[in-house]
Each structure stands twice: as C-alpha cells, then as structure tokens.
Design a protein around this nucleic acid. Structure first.
Lengths: 209, 209
DNA sequence: GTTTGAATGAAACGAACGTATGAGTCAAAC
DNA sequence: GTTTGACTCATACGTTCGTTTCATTCAAAC
C-alpha cells in the first residue's frame, strides 16, 4: 500500500502541475513537494522526469481512448454509415466527459491532454502509442464515408480542427479570466457548444478548388 | 546600422526559437548564438528574456492586428451588418496572410502567436496590450449582430474556437510528420480550408438549452 | 533472530539557466 | 587629440534544475 500510495500521489501531483504549467514549467522538486514524497522517489518509481510525464499521460488518455473506441463501435453496430453529428459526439464527447468525472480532479484531465498536444517540449511527443493512432484512423475512415467529396487532406485538416477546439477552454484558463464571463463555463455547456460548433464545421461542403 | 542590426538579428532569432520551442524551451544563450550576437546583448537591448519575448511578440502581432482592424473597417463601410463568412475571413485571414509574407520566415510567424497563446509560462501572457482586446471586442460585437439568438457565452466560446483552429497547423508541426500527408499544406490551402470550416461553425444555430 | 529486498530519506553532483559586471572598441562630436 | 556615448565582449555570480549516491528503515521470509 505504501508503495502504490507514493507512486499514485506522485502521479496525481504530476498530472496537476504538468497540466497547469507544462512540462518545462514543472520541476521534479515541485511535484514531489506537492505529493509529500522525497525528491528521489521520482527516479526510483519512474526513472526520469520524462518517463513520469509519459506515465501521467497514459493514465489520463487510456480511458478517453477506450471511450472513443467504444462509442464508434456502438455507432457502427447500428449503421455502417453514422451521420456526422454522431461521429463528432462520439469522438469529442469523451474529452469533455473526463472533465466531469472527478469532483474537481477531473477538470485538469483534459487540460493535461491539451498541454501535451501543444507543449513545445520534445519529451511531450515521444510517448504517443499506437492505440491513439488507430482510433484516429478509424474515425478518419468513418468521417470519410460520411463526407464524400472531401479530399483526404481537407478531412485531416478538419480532424485536427476538432482537437484544436477541444483545447479551447485551456486557452481560456491560460489567459487572464475574461471579465464579465464566468471562467468555468461548466463542462456540460462547453461540451454541447463544442458539439454544435464542430458538427456544423465538419458538415461544411468541401472547399471548392 | 550596426546597433539596429544586432537588435533585429536577436529579434529574428528569438521569433524563430520561441515559435519552435516555446518560452521556457528557449535559452537566451541559444538566441544570441543563432543571432551571432553576444550573450549580454539581450540584457543591453531588451532588459530581460521576458521583455525580449514581449518585443518579438509585438513585432509579429501588430501588423496582424492592424489587418484585422482594417478588414473590419472595410466591411463595415459597405454594410452595417456583414455576413458571417466575411467576418470570419476578415478575422482569421490575416493570421494566414502573415504566413505567406516572407519567403520562409513568415511561416513561423503564426506559430509564434499560437505558442504565445498556448504557452504555459506566465511571462507569455503579461504583455497583451489593449489593442488586441479592442479588436476582439469589435469583432465580437459584429458577430453578435450577425448571429442573433446566440448567448454571449456561446459567442465567446465560438470566437475562441476561431483562434484554436488557426492554431491547427502548429499542432501538426509539433507532432511527428503525419505519413502520407505532405506537412506544409501550403498556406493558401490551409487558409481556405480554415475559412470554410470556421464559417460553417460560426453559422451554426444556437445550442438549444 | 537473522536475512532480504523494496522503499524512503538527506545530501550532493554537474550542468544549464538568467542576469550582472567591467573592461574594451570605435565612430562621431568637440 | 581628446572626449563622449553607444555598443560589444569575455567572464563570473547565484540559482535552479534533473539525476545520482548511499545510508537507513521496515515488514516479510526463512
């Protein structure tokens, strides 16, 4: 118990701090201090700071990946050609669902994902496993069937647009709290706004060349 | 000339490195080495690393801000209620135009903007002047007229979505080059894809509550 | 009771960082 | 010819970083 406890507390602290300050902006000392652990514990349990980041990222992303995968399976079980809106919801929804999971700890989950995606540090891009790629490719194929006439390049552009928009609340968090607008717009409202926004965007007719 | 030359070369190098590796991932030593200048030159010409970042950001953002402002002026001179598509183009267009400006140096311009917007370092958020806010507020008002029935909160969400999507190519650059898809999709194609994508997204009916 | 091995703790290592200092350079002003 | 002031340079300072080392703790196995 004591073993797992320290490991888990370090992971929790790392998730929190990496999400808030990025990879380079977070020191191992700050993580162990927040976790109430010794400085050397990171080296002992994870090997290095980069591997700790990878472990924290895996722990956060795996359930989201699984949910995205299950959502697509459910859709495809019903019809071989799901409509765009449902594909968007199945893909983008889990990113917001995780936000509501924990009472308060879940809020930083999606922030960590976006931090990793946008972190300029090289260490943040080395750990992506084949699971993420495979899910993305499956959605890509489903969207391609739902949006005939769209070139593969433009489709990929739009897929990346989905990821970018889910990053939106993080941009808000990083900026000074906008006056006159409650910063935590509640995960549920943001989720539905994003799906509205993205469904319309994905459904746009191909750009004429 | 020699004075301005060193200052400009430092600015160029800083723009390049900040865009690629972020604020914390870029050392003053790396900047001065790339610029062919002495380490102390940063302190002399700019005062500190944070002020250098602010100067580099200002140099990049000011022309974009001016273009966004002029574009809106031109639209409003024609009609008091411009359509959504033209508002999107006037707002998002300059972010891509700057990309094509320099032969190759312009490509990093928009990347620097996104780096600043998404950089977790506190220093990256302190310098935003009143000019940026005023332009954003003017567009906000114009979009509000073009999209009646949209709550102010959802409108702000969508505005942030525009910024997020223009960040899209940066996410691509940070990831390993996607196989089977030429990474530099040419600024012009990305520009038109983004405008298609965003016009449809902004034009979506309000999310029903 | 002794041994074992995982886990923790305190301290230190070398490297890299942002910044500061003071001497040196050089064209223009006088 | 001298002085001035903007600029560049080599170097050093103090801090913080990721990592390593080694002694210590402590429950379980023998």
């Amino acid at each position: 118990m004591a073993t797992t406890d320290t490991r888990t507390q370090i992971l929790d602290a790392a998730e929190h701090l990496f999400a808030e300050h990025g990879y380079r902006g977070t020191s191992v000392r700050a993580i162990t201090k927040l976790a109430g652990a010794n400085l050397a514990a990171v080296g002992y349990h994870f090997g290095s700071k980069a591997e700790l980041m990878a472990a924290a990222a895996r722990r956060v992303i795996e359930p989201i990946n699984a949910a995205q995968c299950a959502g697509l399976d459910k859709l495809l079980a019903r019809t071989p050609d799901p409509p765009v809106g449902e594909l968007v919801e199945a893909f983008a929804g889990p990113l917001f669902d995780e936000m509501r999971a924990g009472d308060e700890g879940g809020a930083r989950t999606s922030r960590l994902i976006v931090t990793i995606l946008s972190d300029p540090a090289e260490e943040a891009r080395s750990w992506t496993g084949p699971a993420e790629d495979s899910v993305r490719e499956r959605y890509l194929a489903a969207f391609a069937r739902a949006l005939p006439g769209l070139s593969p390049q433009e489709l990929r552009f739009r897929m990346r647009g989905i990821l970018a928009v889910t990053a939106v609340d993080r941009l808000e968090v990083h900026q000074q709290p906008s006056p006159g607008c409650a910063s935590p717009v509640a995960g549920e409202a943001a989720r539905r706004w994003a799906i509205t926004f993205l469904t319309a965007a994905m459904s746009a007719p191909p750009t004429r060349t």
